[in-house]
Simulated scan of single mutants.
Amino acid sequence: MAHGERLKAMTLYAILIVFLIISVLPIFWFVMVALKDAAELNSNPFALPKAITLDNIIEAWTVGKMKRYFVNSVIVAVPRVFAILVLATLAGYAFGKLKFPGRDPLFYFILIGMMVPIQAMVIPLYYTMQNLGLINTYWALIIPSLGLAMPFAIFMMRAFFRDIPDDMMDSAKIDGCGDFKTFLYIMLPLMVPAVTSLLVFEFAASWNEFLLPLLFVYEDTYRTLPLGLMYFSGEYTTNQSLVAAGVTIAVVPIIIVYVIFQRKFIEGITAGSVKG
Rank of each mutant, 00 (worst) to 15 (best):
P124F: 05
I123N: 08
L134F: 14
I118H: 10
N136K: 10
A149P: 04
F155A: 00
Y127K: 15
M114P: 10
R158K: 13
L106E: 07
K99C: 07
W139V: 07
I142L: 02
A120P: 09
L141P: 01
F152I: 05
A140G: 03
L148Y: 10
I143K: 00
L106M: 15
I112C: 09
G133D: 07
G113R: 04
G147F: 12
F100V: 04
I118N: 13
L125M: 15
P101R: 12
L98N: 08
L141N: 00
G133M: 08
F152N: 01
P151D: 00
P124E: 06
M114Y: 10
V116M: 06
F160V: 09
I143R: 01
N131S: 06
A159M: 00
A120E: 05
K99I: 14
G113Y: 12
L98F: 14
F155K: 00
L98T: 06
R158H: 05
F152K: 01
M157K: 00
S145R: 06
A153C: 01
F109S: 11
I110P: 09
L132G: 02
I154M: 01
A140Y: 06
F161V: 08
A149F: 04
Q119H: 15
M129L: 08
P117V: 14
V116W: 12
I118D: 12
G147I: 06
F109Q: 05
A159E: 03
F107Q: 10
M157I: 09
A159S: 04
P144G: 00
M129E: 03
P105I: 15
G133Y: 09
F155E: 01
